[in-house]
Simulated scan of single mutants.
Amino acid sequence: MKQLPKRLLSIDVLRALTMLLMIFINDASGVSGIPAWLDHAKETEDALGFADVIFPAFLFIAGLSIPLAIKSRISKGDSTGQVLFYILSRSAALLIMGFYHVNLEGCSPAAILPRAVWEILITLCFFLVWLDYPDTMAKGKKYTLTGIGIASLIVLAILYRGGDMVHPHWMRTSWWGILGIIGWSYLVCALIYYLTKGSLKLLITAWIVLVVTNISAHTFLDHDLLPIIGDVSAQALTMGGVVAIGIYSYLVKIEKTKRLWLLFTILGIGLITAGLIIRPYAEGISKIRSTPAWIFLCSGITILMFEFFIYLVDVKGKANWFKLIRPAGTSTLTCYLIPYFQVAFIELFNIAYPSILNSGIIGLIRSMATSLIIIGLVGLMEKKRLRLKI
């Protein structure tokens, strides 16, 4: 009986491209005179900017990876307890990092440590705690480095001060940050997948429930419908990826993969159409307000992109075309964290780009070059086994 391989190169390439664009968009946010369509749409706008498609694509791709990762753990002989620990520990890591990142936004100017210093130190601690240490390293050394990272994060939390001189406060969640949102979404969707034993019918049912819940939250119910996960927008996007890879796996299993092209095309176009239809009735299109139209449109776009890369990479074998950005697909979290060092050092040493490098098309070229340099650096780190295991 046939089945999908444990790792699909098409997913790695799609993830790499998405991470490249995420770094680029974040860097380009400081560039003046860029086209409005490239940026995020404002909260009050009924619109979809190019930047508004990147994060939902990442959530969808996370969903694509969940079944493959869990199946791999099971095939290695992991028990139920080990699989659940794997899911919970990955989720906890993302939530902790997201929690610290959110508090960067409100760091007080009067804090004991300057914001940039605190940012550099917490990022270093993330590497100490979640580094993919080689199996050949002595356990004592590994545990010591991990312990130093954990202890340092605790100390940095104690030293933290947010707010201002009049209204100081300790660390808190105004939201969970990008990594925290991924963490909660991963936790919910991975548990659903594992508890349903990957049943495609049950996964589709779960996806529909999440989508309907989001629609309800933006029509006649409160947006903050559920504790923490609110309108379940992130979970709906991630579960869309879980369902998509489930369909692909099923077609491989019954040896009907030729149907994939028609099914994914219909599904992608259908989701985009659904987004346009529901747009006037559920608060329009908005990433910031996580509306149903945004979810449908981004899911449809991403599944069509996934279909394209299945054909280009898995069928035609063109993975080498994307060799330059490969580390962004295999050491993705490392790629995401490195820019925090970049931003912190720029702030700490008050570095400013010449205006010509921070405006218009030249500024965008500089942002893309910066993104590629970061990915290249991560590629060098990957060769030295300096990558996070999350």
Rank of each mutant, 00 (worst) to 15 (best):
G98L: 03
S331N: 11
I74V: 13
G180F: 01
C189L: 04
F341I: 10
I295Y: 03
T196S: 15
I356G: 00
V188K: 00
A116K: 00
R115K: 15
R289C: 00
G149D: 07
A28N: 05
F60H: 09
H169I: 05
L4Q: 09
K253D: 11
F55Q: 05
L200P: 03
L200W: 02
L128C: 13
W176C: 04
W294A: 01
A69S: 15
I178Q: 12
P339R: 04
Q3P: 01
I66P: 00
L121K: 05
I87T: 09
A28E: 07
L251E: 02
L333W: 06
E283R: 14
A328Q: 02
I96S: 01
T173L: 15
S10L: 08
Y353L: 15
F220V: 12
K42G: 10
I96G: 00
T205M: 12
G270N: 07
G268M: 06
T196N: 09
L145K: 06
I150R: 07
L156R: 04
Y248I: 09
I228D: 03
A93V: 12
P280V: 11
I301G: 05
E255N: 15
T273P: 02
M171H: 09
I158N: 05
T146S: 02
I228K: 05
K256M: 10
I310S: 03
C335F: 08
P339A: 07
L191A: 06
V117M: 11
D231M: 05
P292L: 07
I204E: 01
S367M: 05
K6Y: 11
A110G: 08
I338H: 03
K139L: 12
P339H: 08
L9S: 13
T213F: 07
I74M: 13
G180E: 14
I390Y: 04
G49Q: 06
L364R: 04
S233L: 03
Y311G: 02
W261T: 11
D78S: 14
L304W: 06
A282I: 01
C335K: 01
S89V: 06
W261F: 13
S79G: 10
H223P: 01
Q235A: 14
A47C: 04
P292Q: 10
Y340M: 06
T173Q: 10
G363E: 02
F55S: 01
L94K: 01
P292C: 09
L14R: 06
I54G: 03
I285W: 03
V53W: 06
L156N: 05
K141I: 14
